[in-house]
């Protein structure tokens, strides 16, 4: 008798829980937020999504793998895998390789002031105006490299973070 009561109780509770899980929507937005904080916020778009938050949303929607973030490297994969209780994956090198952090440097002698890189910077770290020389606010630069292809005169290059602004080459 006791066994019947206990198993009946367990079955009822299990049923209730299943129904609750189906009916009540999980707070997806909160998980996206949480996932977003695990990403390095470089906003480089190398994961094929236009920024860290869209990538976080795509992971949760099952559209993207957790190993598409080259700047985050293995540490990010580990953190996401732990959060979502997914198996760890090896970094997918087709999206890029994990490397030391860099910042962009504009060679101000060559800059023609076209203002194209200003639009590309995801964190507004380039200061300048049309027909005026631009410069990178090093403290704000995440090193996403998105400004590099936009430059028509190839005057932007990446330098190691913390190395200080190198002298402009003449």
């Amino acid at each position: 008798m006791a066994i019947l009561v206990m198993s009946g109780l367990a079955a009822t509770i299990a049923l209730l829980l299943i129904v609750a899980a189906r009916r009540l929507p999980g707070d997806k937005q909160a998980v996206v937020e949480q996932l977003n904080t695990l990403l390095p916020q470089i906003q480089c778009g190398r994961c094929d999504y236009p920024g860290c938050r869209p990538y976080a949303a795509a992971i949760l929607a099952g559209e993207a793998q957790i190993n598409q973030c080259p700047p985050g490297g293995e540490a990010t994969i580990q953190a996401i895998a732990t959060l979502l209780e997914l198996p760890r994956l090896a970094p997918d090198r087709s999206f890029g390789i994990h490397d030391a952090l860099t910042t962009a440097v504009i060679n101000e002698k060559d800059c023609i002031g076209c203002a194209r890189c200003l639009q590309e910077c995801p964190v507004d770290a380039i200061l300048g105006a049309r027909f005026f020389t631009h410069t990178v606010i090093t403290d704000e630069c995440t090193g996403c490299e998105l400004c590099i292809p936009s430059c028509p005169v190839d005057c932007i290059r990446m330098s190691m973070r913390g190395a200080g602004a190198p002298q402009n080459q003449s």
Binding site: T37, Q41, I42, Q43, V123, D124, E140
Partner: peptide, 8 residues
């Protein structure tokens, strides 16, 4: 990263 996210 938090700072970069805010700016983004």
């Amino acid at each position: 990263a938090i700072h970069a996210r805010q700016r983004f």
